[in-house]
């Protein structure tokens, strides 16, 4: 048995260090990914996944921390995947979610993992997807994924979730125009956090107005909370549960999961192809063809066709 498979088996048997190690492997998006996916596939599909997104500083981590005690009444284990952006200059990152989300008081029933977005182009979504499936397979029955709702890449991650919670603050409408539409479309449940600050009512009206334009049926609930005191958090948890019940009863959970599976396959193919293209472009063949192309001895179509044929050729 390969080392990876041994790790997976250990993780499936409940080893936290093994799960942690596998999550690192998933983050690197290396060739072991398919091996991991193979080994866990039979065990995946039991967890409910809640995505939490919203602008920076909306209080997402604090809110998740406040949701944990409620969630642990309904689920015996909660996994949290907290995604923060990588620096575009150094590829490094500072991941600060654990400062607000220690989970220590819940002992072994909470597993928190920080993840840097590491560039774009769906790589994040793919790593997050495998990470989520790993946690799922290892028996974490509720998984919460947190990302910044600032761009398409982050919102893409929300496709992994059964229920997406969008966290906003009073005054939201004035500060982030850019991705307002993306956020309102992404959410299944909305919460105006820091509702004790002035402007909560205006924001609520503003949000309800934006949502009414989308004509969604049933209209998504809009909750209010103050995560720092715990006010409104129990009600928010109920709203999240109600949405999950609705998904199950309406059969949407199954169709949504089929859609997710399709996205996963598509992403995996794209990812593999990208690797193959990289390898091809590094080959002697590509180098010599590029030289000819630069000298004008080959036109673009000829070059591309030849290389595509090479890509499709089965390797022995």
């Amino acid at each position: 048995m390969s080392a990876i498979c041994e790790q997976v088996d250990a993780a499936l048997a409940g080893s936290r260090p093994a799960l942690a190690r596998l999550l690192s492997i998933a983050e690197r998006s290396g060739p072991e990914l398919l091996e991991i996916e193979d080994r866990i596939s039979a065990r995946v599909g039991n967890a409910l996944v809640v995505g939490v997104t919203g602008p920076p500083g909306a209080g997402k981590s604090t809110l998740i921390n406040a949701l944990l005690p409620h969630a642990l009444k309904d689920f015996d284990g909660v996994g949290v995947l907290a995604v923060d952006p990588s620096s575009p200059f150094s590829d490094g990152a500072i991941l600060g979610d654990r400062v607000r989300m220690q989970g220590g008081e819940y002992g072994s029933s909470v597993f928190i993992r920080s993840m840097a977005s590491r560039g774009e182009l769906g790589g994040l979504a793919r790593a997050a997807s495998t990470a989520m499936r790993l946690m799922d397979a290892c028996g974490w029955s509720l998984i919460i994924i947190e990302t910044l709702g600032i761009g398409q890449v982050e919102l893409d991650v929300m496709n992994l979730a059964d229920t997406t919670l969008v966290v906003l603050n009073p005054g939201w409408g004035d500060t982030i125009q850019a991705n307002k539409a993306g956020l309102t479309e992404a959410g299944d449940v909305f919460v105006i956090n820091k509702a004790d600050k002035p402007g909560a009512d205006v924001t609520r009206t503003d949000l309800l107005e934006s949502l009414s334009l989308l004509n969604r049926e049933p209209p998504p609930p809009v909750c209010q909370s103050t995560a720092s005191t715990g006010d409104g958090v129990a009600e928010l948890w109920t709203a999240l549960r109600d949405h999950q019940d609705y998904l199950e009863q309406s059969g949407q959970l199954d169709s949504a999961r089929a859609h997710k599976q399709q996205l996963l396959v598509r992403r995996t193919i794209t990812h593999q192809l990208t690797h193959e293209v990289e390898r091809l472009m590094d080959s002697d063949l590509a180098t010599s063809m590029l030289d000819q192309s630069t000298l004008g001895q080959l036109d673009l179509r000829q070059t591309v066709d030849r290389l595509l044929r090479e890509l499709a050729r089965p390797r022995g």
């Binding site: 990588s86 620096s87 490094g92 500072i94």
Partner: peptide
């Protein structure tokens, strides 16, 4: 933490 990030590390701050 900032210097390490700028050197390409992913730094998990736990406070």
């Amino acid at each position: 933490a900032r210097a390490l990030r700028d050197a390409g590390f992913e730094v998990i701050m736990i406070g």
